[in-house]
Structure formats: C-alpha cells, structure tokens
Design a protein around this nucleic acid. Sequence first.
DNA 1: AACATCTGCAACCGCCGGCGG
DNA 2: CCCGCCGGCGGTTGCAGATGT
Length: 363
Amino acid sequence: MGRPPCCDKEGVKKGPWTPEEDIILVSYIQEHGPGNWRAVPTNTGLLRCSKSCRLRWTNYLRPGIKRGNFTDHEEKMIIHLQALLGNRWAAIASYLPQRTDNDIKNYWNTHLKKKLNKLTQIGGHSKDEGFTSTCSQQATIARGQWERRLQTDIHTARQALREALSPAENYKPDGFASSVSLSSTSTTTSTDLKPSMDIVPAGQSDQSPSTTLSTTYASSTENISRLLKGWMKNPPKSAKTGTTAAAGVIDSTSSNEEATLSAANTTTTTSTTGHGSIQLSNAFESLFGFECSLEASNSDLSPTMSPDQGSLFQAESKPDVDQDQMPLSLLEKWLFDEAAVIHGKEVHFSDFIALDGENANFF
DNA sequence: AACATCTGCAACCGCCGGCGG
DNA sequence: CCCGCCGGCGGTTGCAGATGT
C-alpha cells in the first residue's frame, strides 16, 4: 500500500530490451541461475528494475519457451482451460509447459476471444473452420457436459480424496509432497522449470516459425540461442551448488533445473519429469483434443499418466502456485465445504480442473 | 506508392500474497 | 502481530509491422 513501484527510480530504463541487455541478462543467469532478481540489476549494471529482468527472462529468454503459432491442440486446451479456469493465465500456462502465461494471455485476447465471439454471434454453426466449430460447440456445451459428468464423478473423487487425506494427512504422492515442500522456496525458480524441452530460443519456433518475426532482432536471438546452448553444454558451476547462498532463492529445484536443462540438450532426461510433462500435456491433449469426446475426460486422464509422472510434473515444472498449493487447500475446501461446490448451481470448475489434474495424482 | 487502419506482442503497471525480521 | 521486501499474477498499453484502401 502506497509503496512506490520498483521502477519509479530515476535512471531505470524502460521499453524494449536490446540484444546487448538480453545477453547481459542471460550471461548473468547463466552464471548465477535465475532468482534473486533484486540483485540482477545491481550486479549486472543493467538499468532495469528487477521486475523487468524477471519478466524478460520468464517471458522471453528462458529456455524451453515455444514461440510461434499455437497448435490446434494448444488452442483447444486454452479455450477449455479458460472456460474452466477463467482468466487465470498462469494456471492455464501451467498446463502448457512451453508457453508463457503472457503468451497465452495475448493469444487469447488477440485470437481466441475474437474467434469465439464471432462464433457465438453466428450462433456456433460455423462449418468452415473445423477447429472453431468444434471448439465453439465445446465451449458452449462443455460447461453443461462437464458439470454433469463431473458431478457424477464427484462422489467417487470425494471418496478417494477422503481416503487419501483423512487417514494420514501426510499421504501425498511423492511429487505432491515435494511440491508442497518446495513451494515456499521455489516459486521464483520454478517458474523457469521447463524440463526436457528442446531449447527454442526466443523468436524461433520448432514449428511453423512466425513469419512476423522481428528480423532486426534475429541476430540477437541467435546470439542468445548460442549463449543458451553454451549454457546447456556448460551448466553454471555456481548455480549448481554454491549459488544457493549467493542467490538466496536458488534451491534444489534450481539444481534440478540445471540438470534437466543440461540433459535437454542431449535429450537424455535425468528424471521422469520431462516425460511426465509431455505425458501430461498429451493427457490434456487427449482430454481436450478430442473429437468432441468429452467422455474421455476424467477416465482418459488417469491412465495416461502415472501418479509419479503427474506429480513430478506438477512439482517440478508447474510454476503456478495453484499447482503447488492449490490442490490441497482447494481439495480441503472442496471436500469440507460441501454446500459451496456441490449444491450450488454455479459449480466452480476451476476447482474441478484443479482436481481433475490432481486426479492424476490421487487416482 | 502513400496513407490509414488493424493486429500482434513485448513490456509495463498495480495489486496481492508469502515470507522473514 | 506488524511491517517491509520480494516475486507472481492479471490487466492494460504502446509500438512496430502487416494489411487494406
């Protein structure tokens, strides 16, 4: 309250980042690992506020970010997740590990909202756009069908959840437990955990690269790409062990990140994380990328992914606090606050989707 | 070819919550 | 318990490039 914004300081540069700044930032993070953003401007000499540095890193420079066109599956997932979660872009982004919340938000605001608006105006009878017609139908019927279906699943879910939570509160799948334990310290660095993704430098996409790419920035992205590749090959020594104290925020998660990122370069995954994330994505793609097979929703999700995979994915690659912390609290609320959820006509599907993802852990 | 309008996206802003002193 | 710091999140803006006239 009343606290001046961090960027009010004189001499803080604003506006687009230059390639030089990017390289400085990447170099610093290469050296120290992500985190402790407060120290970044002072240590690097960048005339940027810490927030700007963090944003630049998480939204643009961070390895594993996929840029360029969204696939149909991604679009469908976004549409449905938005319908279920609302404008909780970070939560939505957590289900699309390669996309940033900013990216998804932009994509929604510029593309999908428009599409859906158009379709709802038309009445949802568009036939020329396979995707959109499918999605408009899904968007309009999804709630009802999901509600019905999910309500039928509620009983089962609740039973299982009670069993899972009540006898020993400490029954948590490994990943879930670790997510809880890590959540307090890894919120910053976990944002950067996009394990086992091919390094797709900013401005380059592994699929149908955007033709609107800024050519003026191409050289910089290449530079950064090289930088990052170098980073992958030579993970920061300090970030692995010694940075913990220095950075203050770096923890074991970061080390995992480094390890995983290193592994990413050789596609040798050191843990199941990457596969978990991919499988979860696939699971959701199977969930949302249906031929309108909403029937596939819950039942398909669970077998696609082992509990460990799902939980590991959540623990290690889900930056969002919802993924780390919401499940338990939400589940508790959901479990014990019956009237709010079950009897209300307006069932909060955000709860359900969280639970749905959680089903992978619990069921 | 020149101008106007539209679009996409990077970045900023303000608020909020967690955490530690 | 209070307060300040820090980072995360969602909404919004501004600009550059694309497209239309």
